[in-house]
Design a protein around this nucleic acid. Structure first.
Lengths: 117, 117
DNA sequence: CGCTTAGTACGATAAACACCGTACTACGTC
DNA sequence: GACGTAGTACGGTGTTTATCGTACTAAGCG
């Protein structure tokens, strides 16, 4: 079997808003959900980039999980890209800081609400 | 209806969450709405306290207006009290700053989204 | 190819939410 | 007491949202 068989992997791309397009209401709404906030906090802890969705152990189904990641991505809070079968996420720290200085920091520093909802 | 003995002015009081009770998710949710954000920005501009609800000229009906002020109050973003026939509002700047340092400042500094929704 | 793993798409459902209009209460004034 | 003003309560409507299960695609492996 010729080694050239494997062409480029099918580049599955995901739409992301440009830095200037980030809306404050959208970001606040994204962060206002306990599960999404938990995702963001986890991403912030392990700031060394790129966590697969499955690494979060969320108390919801797979499809609900996909939904929350999409809300975070579409609001511009996280960036996602595919690598093999997994979809890796990381915080858009710099973009957020540029556009809404201090916001993410304040949110991350805030005391977590008594767990549950 | 019990005809309360009219002593002094009937003290109409409104429930407010204690400073320690403020929940991040609740505050973020309250701030995630364009109309409520507008109210908060207006209160922040005129930081010399106490604006009546009618002073905001919001593009919604009276009852919707009441609804938004309630969300802000119940989440702990504003404090309200009655004075005569009007219900005066002011930002709970200090309480918010104590519990979520930098959050309100960051939100107020953020560029407003292109108006509309 | 068949199998597994990781995630998405697609309904469907129930709850929450923004919004309104009408009816009401509280206060101030005449 | 009657009237006007400021705001609330209530009930209703349409939209959005969080959630799920099932069916699907994409990538890697034997």
């Amino acid at each position: 079997m010729p080694a050239t068989a494997r062409t480029a992997a099918t580049v599955r791309t995901l739409p992301h808003p440009a830095p200037e397009e980030l809306r404050l209401e959208g970001v606040l709404h994204a962060l206002a959900d306990p599960i999404r906030l938990r995702i963001v906090r986890t991403l912030a802890e392990r700031r060394h980039e790129n966590l697969a969705c499955s690494a979060f152990e969320l108390p919801v189904s797979k499809s609900t999980s996909t939904h929350h990641f999409r809300v975070l991505r579409e609001s511009g809070v996280i960036r996602q890209h595919y690598e093999g079968t997994s979809c890796l996420s990381r915080l858009r720290r710099d973009d957020l800081e540029d556009r809404f200085p201090g916001l993410l920091t304040a949110v991350l520093q805030a005391p977590p609400s008594p767990s549950g909802k």
